[in-house]
């Protein structure tokens, strides 16, 4: 058995989740792939240790978030992609929501965006989110609060009554 087989197996088993998280963070197919690639390089280097006594799942998530937040803000890394993918011609409510949310996400800071993705896409608790981001629970609370305030300002329809319970759950 190749000593890298464990790493391969681990990544391939989570490829959909990893790809989707990276895509939510970047909003761009190429950047998502770049982000995944950079993250996997880091995880691969640590794999011998992780596979013995580590927590590969948590490490990978944290590596992904660290990589995303610390990405250099220069041209080749920063520029957003073109328009969102088109899915048919009918713009129903759900389609519009996705388009609007893409625009809102693009206007958040990286940490705010990461917090939204971790809390509402990965369904992590505040403590788990703090661990993934390497920050305190208080920071998670404040970043979530700011992200949701921005969401309310830019897309109040997404912050409708059905979402209030979510907001109250995470607001300090």
């Amino acid at each position: 058995m190749d000593r890298h087989d464990g790493f391969r197996e681990f990544v391939l088993a989570r490829q959909q989740a990893l790809t989707r998280t990276a895509y939510l963070l970047t909003g761009d197919a190429h950047l998502a792939e770049d982000l995944l690639q950079s993250t996997l390089v880091n995880v691969a280097k640590q794999w011998p240790r992780l596979s013995v006594d580590g927590n590969p799942e948590a490490y990978t998530r944290r590596a992904l978030m660290n990589q995303y937040i610390s990405w250099r803000r220069r041209l080749r890394r920063e520029w957003p992609s073109a328009s969102p993918p088109e899915h048919g011609v009918s713009h129903d409510e759900e389609t519009l929501d996705r388009i609007v949310l893409r625009q809102v996400l693009a206007r958040l800071t990286r940490k705010q965006r990461a917090v939204l993705v971790l809390r509402f896409w990965e369904d992590l608790t505040e403590a788990q989110t703090a661990e993934a981001l390497g920050c305190s629970v208080g920071t998670v609370k404040s970043q979530t609060h700011r992200a949701l305030a921005r969401l309310r300002a830019l897309a109040p329809e997404l912050a409708g009554p059905h979402s209030l319970s979510t907001f109250q759950e995470v607001t300090p």
């Binding site: 391969r8 895509y23 979510t166």
Partner: peptide, 24 residues
């Protein structure tokens, strides 16, 4: 599910296929 969560799930489902074996 809230509209926010639903929209996040919707965007996530638009994620492109990535050749993960090559990335590995």
């Amino acid at each position: 599910m809230t509209r926010l969560r639903r929209a996040l799930y919707g965007i996530a489902e638009e994620a492109p296929a990535v050749d993960m074996a090559a990335l590995v």
